[in-house]
Design a protein around this nucleic acid. Structure first.
Length: 576
DNA sequence: TCTGCATGCAGC
DNA sequence: ACGCTGCATGCAGA
């Protein structure tokens, strides 16, 4: 059962029943959020799929009214997938002229209204985006999927992408518990007492002085890389850059204070007091998640650098009193994805235990875990030189199917061809400039430089497509994992007697997560669930079972494991 | 003064 | 000459 939902105003929604699409439903109503809550509750037993243009534009409004939904279809995100997918290349949708359904990025409520990310009041929100005819777009999408060779995979992908959008909105709404007081103590311990913006805290000032005296430059600003580089060279330090990993190799009295300075200066500028005041509201961090924000299907984020939370500050992520975190991450996800994608049973066997790299060592392929890791990463990223490059032939002998698959993806990219993930997300084609450069290199008057340039760009694109199939399929696994976690938590909170929470669309709470375990963070292959402490065992079981289900959804009976490290902690810093 | 680019580094 | 990101900062050019 499908129900189309569109925003008609700041707080009103139009709902149109589509029945099962062959048998149209006459429902066509304009509802307030409160009325929508009742409407949705009445239909919940029918497991409706709510179809809307843009989750980021509609769902926050529902959440602010205390409404959660189980299933959705995000037309914007699904359009983006179907437009590019090889599996739907012949469809009317893929061949239509570009429209605002192809707009590059979501228009969020915050952007529409100029509201801050935390202002969930939605004051003067305007129409949703994109604004195209949702019903005909939905039909075009269903047609495109139905005509695909393996519609099941695409259906799974679209469902996973759409539930991902629900989860993204819910996580932004709920926020990651973040204790400003702890963060402040942590910063003070590292940097010294807080000082006015523009000044250096004591620890940083001391280090700057030590750097200046070690270099004999009393006015040096260590925050300016060019200035620092010149000073280093003048002092006889032979380096071409000021990168930390270059400086580490050098033996000179300035190096130790300089490296410490860089580390602390970065903490201050990226996650210092200013960051804290900008992003932490009532002990919650509310980054905006952007499902499908990366071409591979990974999520991007906006605001607060949520993809780069340094380990240094994770101690400030502490569960509420009486609550705890279940923190889980998939162990060596990408190599396992590659093993399954390529049906490389030898590599899958190496991954039978919790440590795939140890399994590779145990099989006698390489001597150390570090070698196994660097070799695998090299295979997936396209390394050609260094230790990684040297180890690749051994990996290729042990795992010919897996390595053949990454090689084939790279060759396809070098030709300018498209590659696809397990569920059917396809890579973009290289742009006209890329083709121009390739063409120029084959013309009569091509110079050596033309050829070098073309070859280099072809290899660049090959490394991109090589990685695309693995990173993109891993992103699909992660979406399925989270979708199953969400489903498990939903059912858990509805049956455990903790009270009113959990029955989504029908509940009367303002905050739908107030009493129920819920996802609060996601980062590629890692999730955090915030849960009442007494449910942590059951939440862990849900998270673990979800990983197994995700593996089956993507790879059926192929014998590949996706083990997790899953811990129950009060602070994120204790997770690993 | 504003904007875009380069550098450097945090995460996976 | 090893994939995908986001963000702060300094700096050059408009």
């Amino acid at each position: 059962m499908y129900i189309l939902v569109s925003r008609t105003g700041t707080r009103s929604l139009r709902v149109r029943g589509l029945g099962a699409l062959g048998a149209p439903d006459e429902t066509d109503l304009t509802l307030t959020v409160a009325e929508f809550r009742e409407f949705a509750a009445e239909r919940e037993v029918l497991l409706p799929r709510w179809v809307w243009n843009d989750t980021a534009s509609v769902y926050p409004l529902l959440l602010s009214g205390g409404v959660r939904v189980r299933r959705a279809h995000d037309l914007r995100l699904c359009h983006a997938i179907l437009r590019l997918s090889e599996a739907t290349a012949g469809s009317a949708l893929a061949n239509a002229p570009t429209s605002d359904w192809d707009a590059a990025s979501p228009v969020t409520v915050a952007q529409e209204t100029g509201a801050t990310l935390f202002d969930l009041d939605l004051g003067s929100a305007t129409a949703a985006s994109p604004s195209g005819d949702d019903l005909s777009e939905f039909k075009a999408q269903l047609d495109a999927v139905a005509a695909a060779a393996e519609p099941g995979r695409l259906r799974l992908l679209l469902a996973a992408e759409s539930v991902g959008a629900l989860i993204a909105a819910e996580m932004q709404f709920a926020g990651l518990p973040w204790r400003s007081a702890i963060h402040d103590r942590l910063l003070t311990a590292e940097l010294g007492a807080r000082v006015a913006p523009g000044l250096r805290p004591a620890r940083l000032e001391e280090l700057a002085d030590r750097i200046r005296s070690a270099l004999g430059e009393s006015t040096l600003n260590p925050d300016s890389p060019p200035e620092l580089l010149r000073a280093l060279n003048r002092a006889g330090v032979a380096t071409a850059s000021t990168r930390a990993w270059e400086l580490e190799k050098i033996d000179h009295p300035v190096i130790e204070p300089l490296l410490r300075y860089k580390k602390l200066a970065r903490l201050l500028s990226n996650n210092g007091w200013f960051w804290m005041e900008s992003w932490i509201v009532q002990d919650r961090f509310h980054p905006e998640y952007l499902p499908g924000g990366v071409v591979t299907g990974r999520w991007a984020t906006r605001g607060g650098g949520a993809l780069q939370l340094p380990h240094q500050v994770r101690g400030a992520v502490v569960a509420d009193p009486g609550w705890t975190f279940v923190v889980a991450d998939a162990a060596q996800l990408e190599p396992r994805i590659l093993a399954a994608l390529s049906a490389d049973t030898a590599m899958a066997t190496a991954g039978r235990g919790v440590d795939l790299y140890a399994g590779i060592v145990a099989s006698g392929v390489v001597e150390t875990r570090a070698h196994a890791k660097v070799a695998m990463l090299g295979a997936m990223y396209g390394a050609t030189s260094g230790e990684s490059g040297r180890l690749l032939p051994r990996l290729a002998r042990a795992y010919p199917r897996a390595l053949a698959m990454t090689e084939a993806a790279a060759r396809a990219g070098e030709r300018g061809d498209v590659v696809s993930t397990r569920l059917g997300r396809s890579s973009p084609r290289p742009g006209p400039a890329w083709h121009d450069d390739q063409g120029r290199a084959t013309e009569a008057g091509a110079t050596a430089a033309d050829e070098r340039r073309a070859r280099s760009q072809a290899r660049d694109w090959g490394r991109f497509t090589r990685n695309f199939i693995v990173q993109g399929s891993a992103a699909e696994w992660a979406l399925c994992w989270m979708a199953e976690i969400r489903k498990g938590l939903w059912d858990l909170s509805g049956t455990d007697g903790t009270g009113q929470a959990g029955h989504g669309a029908g509940q009367a709470l303002t905050n739908p997560f107030q009493n129920a375990p819920h996802l609060v963070f996601f980062l590629h292959d890692e999730v955090i669930v915030h849960t009442p402490a007494e449910l942590s065992d059951r939440v862990s079981a849900v998270v673990t079972a979800a990983a197994e289900t995700a593996g089956r959804l993507l790879f059926g009976d192929f014998p590949v494991d996706f083990p997790l490290t899953c811990v129950v902690v009060d602070s994120y810093a204790d997770a690993k």
